[in-house]
Simulated assay, not measured.
Amino acid sequence: MVKFTSPLVLLAATALASAAPKGKWFDSIGIIMAENEDFLLTIQQLPYQALISQGLLATNYFGLSHTSEQNYAAILTGVLDPNIYRGDASTPANLNITYPTILDQLKANGLTYKQYTESYPGGCYLADMYPDDPVTALYYKRHSPFNMVSALRGTPECTTAIGTYDDFAKDVASGSLPNYFWIIPNDLHNTHTADTSPNPFVDADPWTATEGPKWLAAAQKANALFINTWDESRCDNQKYPCGDHKDQQIATILWGPMVQKNTTSDKYWNHFSIARTVEDNWGLKPLSTADANATAFDFLMANPSNDTSSSSGSNNGAGSGRTHPNVATSLVKASIDPVLMGAMVGLLSVFYSAI
């Protein structure tokens, strides 16, 4: 009797066990975060209307804080941390996330991540802005969540995990878009000029009109869910009275192969819903009570590679009746890279021919 204890077999088994799980709804998710604008004004802009026509507009989605950086951190950590703050005359700055993030969960499960940061100089840049001048700066660390993660910043990994926006096109072309990524527009293209310009979209509109088709194509190619959202509303009933606007209501647009085109949803969601959707998609453990209690984007259509329902069934989004694979199934089913599979088959063939 032959005992199958060859290192080659063990290597193949290890590779199988460590392969990243397939997503329940998508294989990749991208978050495009803009700044300080209200729902009603955003949806009047033609470039965003073009994105809405190719996906879903969430009409009842809300930001969490009128401190911008806290919203970024909340999506990444599942925690609305009042201690994350850019600093002012009376309060020192604290842009250091020192506790667990969704990146830890992804990494532990063999999933990849990256931030595509416009106007970022690269090289694990540590200063709070670039250029390092508040008059000319286009990149800000407070709008750059990966740069706020203390365990990542300044490490060898940060050179690959925090890239420039130019890296996005390269990764799409090479088919290496990560499982989880952010796109961070610079301070002109993120509508942050809302505080100083009568038209906050004067720079964002043409940029989005150019980049939007690229995002739509990337979603199809990578079976990716894209989420274009804003950190908070411009109105706050203090400095900027809300009037007909709702405080913290922000436009959030979702598109990808798993999203029915030209639809809307009035279901209540907020930034914790993004974290919850990532967790539900890959069967990850929630980071906190807030994201555990949040509602995921459960209108999404099942990932075809994980769809165990009848081929005669149909899925038209929320309420369609199709049952998505549950979390346990998502954890068991693994995505095996064809190259890896070929290598394992080759190793096993060599072993069996030797016994």
Rank of each mutant, 00 (worst) to 15 (best):
A251Y: 01
I184K: 11
Y139M: 13
A74G: 00
Y165S: 14
G87P: 03
C158G: 09
A12S: 14
S353E: 12
L40W: 01
P121F: 00
L300R: 04
S311F: 12
V202K: 07
N293R: 06
G23A: 07
T98P: 00
I29R: 05
R86K: 12
S311H: 11
T91Q: 08
D298C: 06
A173G: 07
N71I: 08
S233K: 01
S68R: 06
Y240E: 10
I75V: 13
D236L: 13
A89F: 08
Y116Q: 04
M148R: 12
A222V: 00
L80Y: 05
A224D: 06
F297K: 04
A15W: 00
Y48P: 03
C235F: 02
T136F: 11
M258R: 00
T91F: 06
N228G: 03
A204P: 01
T67S: 09
A74T: 00
L347A: 13
M344G: 11
A13V: 13
I31Q: 11
P145K: 02
D307W: 01
I250N: 01
P198R: 13
A50L: 07
D337E: 12
T289W: 03
N71Y: 07
I75K: 04
G313H: 01
N223C: 05
P213R: 03
K333S: 12
D280L: 05
I183V: 15
V149D: 09
A151R: 08
A334E: 12
G63N: 10
L103G: 03
V202S: 10
T136R: 14
T208A: 14
A328I: 08
V327H: 08
A222E: 05
T136N: 14
F146V: 04
R142G: 02
D128S: 13
Q105W: 01
Q45T: 04
P198S: 15
D203Y: 15
P134D: 07
P7H: 09
A151S: 15
K239Q: 14
N96Q: 05
K3T: 05
S288L: 09
T98H: 02
W207F: 15
Y48M: 06
G123E: 03
P121A: 08
T229E: 00
S349I: 09
A13M: 12
L56W: 00
A127V: 00
D247P: 02
D195T: 07
D133M: 11
Y120L: 10
E279W: 14
T308H: 10
T196M: 03
Y61M: 03
R234Y: 14
K246W: 04
A20K: 15
